[in-house]
Nucleic acid binder design. Structure first.
Length: 393
DNA sequence: TATGCCGGGGA
DNA sequence: TCCCCGGCATA
């Protein structure tokens, strides 16, 4: 990739929405980005202009998503993100790890989270922004009355001094060395993600039409377009590296969008605009063992099992999401003292028990402690082959 | 295979 | 109610 020389640790005066309000020296600072094809360079404040100009296919997506009325239109980006240079490496590394480790578990539900933000660009390859401990980046999504499709959207930042206009710009700003969408090594195709379909068409219009008619059962002539079909296809670059392709196959993002699926950070707080989402933390997906760690050494301490029913529930309807959320992936962020019972999420085991049998405790029981020789020292329950009352799990 | 414990039955 | 045990589930 043509280098994007950045000196991003710049701060611009912004209003409460993270919008740069007043020009200042920062705008004339040494931020410049290079077009990967033409080599044309853009000064920092020219980047925004380029969104609709010369180099938009390298810096920003060329098309606006064709969402319907239910979708909140994108607000024009107004600034770029100030990101300290020293954060870039960390973000890049995190993105790579997450892309590799999360796999299908994050399908379709890229999250924006200040403690491990995950985004997905137009090809479905995740990029992640790691926790910015003190400042630098804090992302929330624009309000939307419906679960927003994967979109090219204005991700304003809750930190007053940060804002992101879209993830493609973010690729530059974060120094993503492989901006998938900018590759011109192959032709962009569009693949239907509907289960057992996988049809590949050459244009977004065609694939949308295919999805509308074949899967959504809608009339081609139907004017109303709520953009739902955008969920069900992704773009693929037929000559692009397999990693990018493979991941994009798994991601029902809009071909015309570069933003991540718009599941807001505020999800973790329960609801956004009346719609609840599960928080899917990339961290929890990639390293569940950290989250589910339970000290078995303290088996005598009763741990309250937390089942999926204790977690935020998916409050929106979703029509046959193809290849989207696999249940075990929906793992809430839990404290380390909480415990998840995966069987509460996954399909029930082979033979349903008529009575919910108490899970076998891990604590040493009287039999174990005292042995058969000292059976008289067992608790009554143990002697009666009942649940031990002395060493309770 | 060992262990935990549910369900049932006898005293 | 106490006590025991068959049998099942699980580690």
């Amino acid at each position: 990739m043509a280098a994007a020389s950045t000196a991003l640790a710049l701060r611009a005066p912004r209003d409460s929405m993270g919008v740069v309000r007043e020009p200042g020296p920062w705008q004339r600072a040494e931020v410049s980005l290079s077009c990967c094809d033409s080599g044309a360079r853009f000064e920092r404040d020219r980047i925004l202009e380029s969104q609709v100009g010369h180099c938009q296919h390298h810096i920003l997506p060329t098309q606006q998503p064709q969402y319907g009325s239910s979708y909140s239109p994108q607000a024009p980006p107004s600034s770029v993100i100030p990101v300290p240079k020293h954060r870039l490496d960390e973000a890049i590394a995190a993105a790579a790890l997450t892309s590799l480790s999360s796999g299908p578990m994050v399908l379709g539900v890229g999250t924006a989270d200040c403690n491990g933000q995950q985004y997905r660009d137009s090809t479905g390859v995740s990029s992640i922004r790691r926790s910015m401990n003190n400042s630098d980046l804090y992302i929330e999504m624009p309000a939307s009355s419906t679960p927003s499709p994967p979109l090219h959207s204005a991700y304003s930042c809750s930190y007053p001094d940060a804002a992101i206009e879209d993830s493609d710009t973010t690729h530059l700003l974060f120094g993503d060395p492989i901006p998938r969408k900018r590759k011109n090594s192959g032709r962009i195709m569009f693949r239907c993600l509907w289960k057992n379909c996988g049809k590949v068409l050459s244009s977004s219009a065609a694939i949308q039409k295919h999805i509308r008619t074949a899967h959504l059962g809608r009339n081609v002539e139907q004017e109303h377009n709520d953009g739902e079909e955008d969920f069900y296809y992704t773009e693929i670059d037929v000559n692009i590296d397999t990693l990018s392709d493979g991941l994009s196959n798994l991601t029902p993002t809009s071909p015309t969008t570069c933003g991540p699926p718009c599941f807001p950070y505020a999800m973790s707080l329960g609801a956004v605009n009346g719609t609840e989402f599960p928080l899917i933390s990339p961290l929890s997906l990639s390293a569940p063992s950290n989250l589910f760690h339970v000290h078995s050494d303290h088996a005598y301490q009763a741990l309250s099992p937390v089942t999926i029913s204790d977690t935020p529930k998916v409050g929106f309807s979703w029509q046959s999401p193809p290849l989207l959320i696999k249940a075990p992936a929906v793992l809430p962020v839990l404290s380390v003292t909480e415990k998840v019972q995966p069987q509460a999420i996954t399909a029930p085991s082979s033979k349903p028990s008529p009575v919910t049998r108490k899970p076998r405790g891990e604590a040493k029981k009287c039999r174990k402690v005292y042995g058969m020789e000292r059976r008289d020292m067992w608790c009554t329950a143990c002697r009666w082959k009942k649940a031990c009352q002395r060493f309770i799990d």
